[in-house]
Design a protein around this nucleic acid. Structure first.
Lengths: 196, 196
DNA sequence: TCAGTACGTTAACTTAAGATAAGAAATAAG
DNA sequence: CTTATTTCTTATCTTAAGTTAACGTACTGA
């Protein structure tokens, strides 16, 4: 097992809860490293997601399928968790697919093992709470943006956010999809903005 | 303290976690009943929210303010929790205002007391996790609706959902706001649909 | 009771997004 | 290097939402 990788994960988790060695040791046996090649899937629409990943290297995206089209709605970067978490929680088939945009390296553990940790340790349960709260905060922010802002305002907000990497590293038609508009429309917005 | 009301709350909470009497007793000292008259506020934009309510009677709505206009984005009904939860969690000023649409009766406790319960009891911590997960699931659902569906489709989805009460009991301009469109636009959509 | 307000609909006009297609630019593959 | 593919832009046309305003109805409070 890659020690540096494990340390990186521990660091990310301690962002939510500081784990002592005993608590941390509970997770270790469940960790495994996984490589994904570009375009391989981490979660698949219609299948119940079982795994939670921690992205060591590469980017991923998740998308929904509608009318045969892939609607990209989120991006994952190094140092962050990757999962069709809602599918794990609900134990229902995932509505989204998570795909590697580049070759990726992850540390992976199973949601069912995380549930074991929740039972064993109050601290891990707290971690679960804080992660879910963090997720809710992010979703709330995204949602109010969608409800309150025009596509152009959403694009500006994205430009000004800490998610700039989304724009820099990611094909524009994925960004437009993220904003909930067509690539053509985003191109027009950019054109409009450039003229000001 | 109204015993029936407390029982109703206990029942709602047991929907997330079954509490034994000892765990349940931890919350009791913090409960208080509160009456709100129509148009009184439960949470206010710009103020850090401190309270979590359980709605025994009446309806409430929450709204954001933008360009001087109130944008209603959520409705609360009897038997559900009411809170600017994100504000509580983050200990940041609320971006939304929660207003009683009718005279309301609530059971109220403070978020800071809930945090005490989290510390004291693994079961209450689990409750916190499950509530946050539940919240995230709801937000995710709403968000994908906004990203993937047209206003008309969102309205149809709402009609077909278990949130029908929203439409039945609530002024139409609030509904349109909930859908992210203008009242005029919703009126047109309804007109269009009636003709089919 | 009666005036004032709030709410929903309709209409006319403006604005911008969606769909489609064509072409340019950038990237990847042989 | 050349070709093929993907990505982005531009243009045209269609569609629907936003804006504003007028009108009718229902509700509210003095």
């Amino acid at each position: 097992m890659n020690e540096a990788a494990v340390l990186q994960l521990r660091n990310a988790i301690s962002h939510f809860v500081k784990m002592d060695d005993a608590d941390w040791a509970l997770l270790l046996p469940y960790l495994e490293e996984r490589q994904l090649s570009k375009q391989e899937l981490f979660a698949k629409e219609g299948k119940v997601s079982l795994d939670i990943g921690f992205l060591l290297n590469g980017n991923m995206r998740h998308y929904y399928t509608r009318d045969g089209e892939e609607k990209t709605k989120y991006f994952y970067f190094e140092g962050h968790f990757v999962s069709s978490y809602i599918s794990c929680i609900r134990q229902q088939p995932s509505e989204l697919t998570i795909e590697a945009m580049t070759d990726c390296t992850l540390l992976v553990f199973r949601y069912k093992d995380l549930l074991k940790l929740y039972d064993l340790s109050h601290k891990w349960e707290r971690f679960g709470r804080l992660v879910a709260e963090y997720l809710a905060i992010g979703l709330e922010e995204r949602m109010t943006g969608l409800l309150m802002l025009s596509p152009e305002e959403r694009y500006i907000q994205l430009l000004e956010s800490n998610k700039q990497k989304i724009i820099e590293r990611i094909p524009q038609h994925y960004v437009s999809s993220y904003l909930g508009i067509t690539p053509v429309s985003l191109s027009r917005i950019r054109n409009r903005m450039a003229k000001k």
